[in-house]
């Protein structure tokens, strides 16, 4: 895929989320309107409790909005069933989590190929793509190790490889550098930025980290569940 076709990947319209905290309603999002376009390298920033992670959860179908709708390529995800949501996430979303969230009993290769396995990609192709992506993220030679045998930075690289290997529509990264030292975090961000440029894959970060903000091409600030600012940067 080569970028810069300005296609809308995700559209959020009037997204509201109200949590019930021991009987007290808490407004996490108060009507967010946002469009993410193909090839973007966007960071959503804001103080704790501003609704960053909630917004990522809702656009990925991990959580349902209280009001409003989210569409991916014209399909409204809040209207999808449980199985449709699973397929939606498998085929369109690549996740990178703060806590890596690798499957502890699977090796590096198995973790990376897991999503392709769910998608029914043939074994030989899976193996080739895993080897290729591990080379891209700098993890050659650790295919047979378990996540516990890797450093935090290496685990996050596996998570990035897992997120990218099935070539999803968008990669959502929730505080991906929060558990890493600044050098490892900067290295990983440089790698993701490079991949974004080379492959045109869309990245959306939720972060507090200045390292991410410095590298983002678009910076969206959330405060009290609303978009406070939305600036394009180069």
């Amino acid at each position: 895929m080569n970028q810069t076709e300005k296609i809308d990947v995700i559209t959020a319209e009037g997204v509201t989320k109200v949590y019930d905290a021991d009987g007290i309603p808490v407004n996490a999002l108060n009507g967010v309107d946002l469009t993410i376009q193909a090839g973007e390298f966007t960071a959503i920033v804001g103080p704790s409790g501003s609704g960053k992670t909630t917004f990522l959860n809702i656009i990925s179908g991990l959580d349902a909005p209280t009001e409003g709708k989210v569409s991916l390529a014209g399909k409204v995800i809040s209207e999808m069933s449980g199985n449709e949501l699973s397929d939606y996430r498998r085929d369109n979303i690549g996740f990178i989590f703060q806590a890596y969230n690798l499957i502890p009993v699977l090796t590096v290769e198995e973790n990376v190929e897991y999503i392709m396995l769910l998608a029914g990609v043939p074994k030989a192709e899976r193996h080739k793509r895993v080897i290729d992506i591990l080379k891209v993220v700098g993890l050659e030679g650790v295919e047979d190790r378990l996540p516990t045998q890797l450093s935090g930075g290496q685990q996050q690289r596996v998570a990035i490889a897992r997120a990218m290997v099935s070539e999803p529509t968008i990669i959502l990264a929730d505080e991906p550098t929060a558990n890493l030292d600044s050098k490892t975090g900067a290295d990983l961000l440089e790698m993701m930025r490079k991949l974004n440029t080379e492959t045109g894959m869309t990245y959306l970060f939720s972060t507090h980290d200045p390292l991410v903000m410095e590298r983002a091409k678009r910076l969206i600030t959330l405060r009290d569940g609303l978009v406070e600012s939305d600036e394009a940067r180069e």
Partner: peptide, 16 residues
């Protein structure tokens, strides 16, 4: 619970 959440997040179907 968290592990099942991750499995579902990456596309594992509820039946799986």
């Amino acid at each position: 619970t968290r592990e099942y959440g991750v499995l579902k997040a990456v596309g594992t179907k509820p039946i799986q």
